[in-house]
């Protein structure tokens, strides 16, 4: 039996402590230990971006990180962005501007965009495209996603 590691971290503002196996991926920890299934796993090799979460505010691929690496840090997942009654402007914009179809890649796009729009309140279309070029979407052709980001930026500036 592998020696368990006592992990403590903050997820979406709430502190958690769990005894976990050191090899447990952060994505699996969030999904299976904490039951936060909004973080999706698409490739498990860090390319598709569906599993993106924020670690101390920066986007990371939770499938490429061990949960123990988040020890003592703050994690933000899609569940922490907003609630149905109080959506983050990015969530609101993706809903209104048809920024998704199947919705599997959506959480990763949203988390990638939070710090991007905070740092770039008025991005050009090209800047938006570069910012989310590490997130794969097979459904939309990206056009409506880009439009949703433009709408989100507008909402956040207002």
């Amino acid at each position: 039996m592998t020696k368990l590691f006592k992990l403590s971290l903050t997820v979406n503002g709430n502190p958690y402590e769990r005894q976990i196996e050191p090899r447990l991926l952060l994505s699996d920890f969030l999904r299976h230990e904490l039951g936060m299934t909004g973080t999706h796993v698409g490739c498990e090799h860090g390319v598709c971006g569906a599993c993106t979460v924020l670690l101390n505010g920066d986007p990371v691929r939770s499938c490429l990180m061990f949960a123990v690496q988040a020890h003592g840090h703050e994690v933000l997942t899609v569940e922490g962005l907003g609630t149905i009654d109080d959506l983050h402007p990015i969530q609101q914009a993706f809903w209104e501007a048809h920024g998704l179809q199947c919705g599997f890649c959506t959480p990763g796009f949203l988390t990638t965009l939070v710090p991007f729009l905070e740092e770039n309140p008025d991005p050009s279309e090209e800047e938006i495209r570069v910012a989310i070029s590490g997130n794969l979407c097979r459904c939309t052709g990206y056009q409506h996603i880009v439009e949703a980001v433009q709408l989100a930026a507008e909402k956040m500036r207002a």
Partner: peptide, 21 residues
């Protein structure tokens, strides 16, 4: 019309097969 179920898809509440407990 806006798409049904977008609320669940933007909040992470949507349940896909691997999310069923």
């Amino acid at each position: 019309k806006p798409r049904l179920e977008n609320d669940q898809k933007v909040t992470g509440a949507a349940i896909f097969a691997d999310d069923i407990q």
